[in-house]
C-alpha cells in the first residue's frame, strides 16, 4: 500500500498517523504539504487530526479550500480511499466529501477520553478487519464532534448502511450516556456513498500500540494494508 498524509498549518496528529501507518505498512507514508496539489499517486490519503488554521472560522473550513484538498476531492471521486480523523472528518465534511457537519460538543467543552464504539459494518477497506457489531475502545479528543445532518440525510445514510461507528456503552448499546458530544444517533463515523471515504471523530492511531494500553485502532491500519496489498 502507498499512503499520503496531508499536513496543514495547525495539524497536530500528522506524526501520530505517520507512526501508526508505518507500523502497519512497514514503510512511512508520504507527507504532503497543504499547498501541494500534484503529489504522487497513492492508495490511501489521510486527512489527520489537529487544529488546521487554528479551527478559526469553523473547524476544517479553511483547510477544505486548500490545493491539496482540491486534489484529494478529485482522487476521492476517482475511487481513491480517503480517511479523515477528527479534524480530518471536519475537513471532509466541510469539503462536502461527506454529508453533515461537526458542531460544537453539546457540553460546549473539549473532551478527551476513551470511548466505546460499535462497528456498524465490516467492510473493506476501512473496517474489514473488525466484526460487524464488535465493540472497540478508541480515544476521542475534540471540541467540535457533534455530528449533525438533517432528517432526510440521516435517514439516507442509515438506510444505506453508511454509519461506520456509533458511540455505545461497553455492551454495545448506543445510550444517551454513551454519547460524548451530542451526535445525532450516536454517530461517530460515516462513509460516503461509494464507501471509499471514511470520516470519524475517534483517533484509531492513538490506540495502535500495546505500550499505550490498547491496540483496538490497529486493525483499521492492518486492514487497509491487507486491502491494498
Amino acid at each position: 500500500m502507498k499512503a499520503a498524509v496531508i499536513v496543514f498549518p495547525g495539524s497536530n496528529c500528522d506524526r501520530d498517523i505517520e507512526v501508526a501507518l508505518t507500523q502497519s505498512m512497514g514503510r512511512p507514508p508520504l507527507m504532503v504539504w497543504h499547498r501541494d496539489d500534484s503529489f504522487p499517486s497513492v492508495d490511501l490519503i489521510v486527512v489527520p487530526g489537529g487544529f488546521s488554521y487554528g479551527d478559526y472560522l469553523r473547524a476544517g473550513a479553511m483547510a477544505a479550500n486548500s490545493p491539496a484538498m482540491a486534489e484529494t476531492k478529485r482522487r476521492a471521486d476517482a475511487g481513491v480511499a480517503v480517511l479523515g480523523i477528527c479534524n480530518g472528518f471536519q475537513i471532509l465534511a466541510e469539503s462536502r466529501l461527506l454529508p453533515g457537519v461537526l458542531m460544537r460538543n453539546a457540553t460546549l467543552r473539549f473532551i478527551c477520553r476513551d470511548v466505546h464504539l460499535r462497528v456498524e459494518e465490516s467492510r473493506p477497506p476501512f473496517t474489514g478487519n473488525y466484526r460487524k457489531g464488535q465493540v472497540i475502545r478508541i480515544p476521542i479528543a475534540h471540541h467540535d464532534g457533534n455530528y449533525f445532518a438533517d432528517h432526510e440525510t440521516l435517514a439516507r445514510i442509515e438506510g444505506e448502511g453508511r454509519v461506520a461507528f456509533r458511540y455505545t456503552d461497553q455492551c454495545g448499546k448506543p445510550t444517551a450516556r454513551a454519547n460524548p458530544n451530542g451526535s445525532s444517533a450516536n454517530i461517530a463515523g460515516i462513509v460516503n456513498e461509494a464507501g471509499n471515504v471514511l470520516g470519524m471523530m475517534p483517533h484509531p492511531e492513538r490506540l495502535a500500540d500495546q505500550a499505550l494500553s490498547g491496540t483496538d485502532g490497529r486493525a483499521m491500519f492492518d486492514g487497509l494494508v491487507e486491502a491494498f496489498g
Binding site: N12, C13, R15, D16, V19, A20, G49, R109, F110, I111, C112, R113, P139, A141, H203, E205, R206, D209, A211, L212, S213
Partner: peptide, 25 residues
Amino acid sequence: IWEQYDHMVMADTVAQPGGDAAIVR
C-alpha cells in the same frame, strides 16, 4: 479538569493524569 485537556496527542502518553506521576514515552 483533565478530560478537557488533550492528554494523548503525540501518542506517547503511557500513564495518563490521575496517577502519582504521568509517564511520557
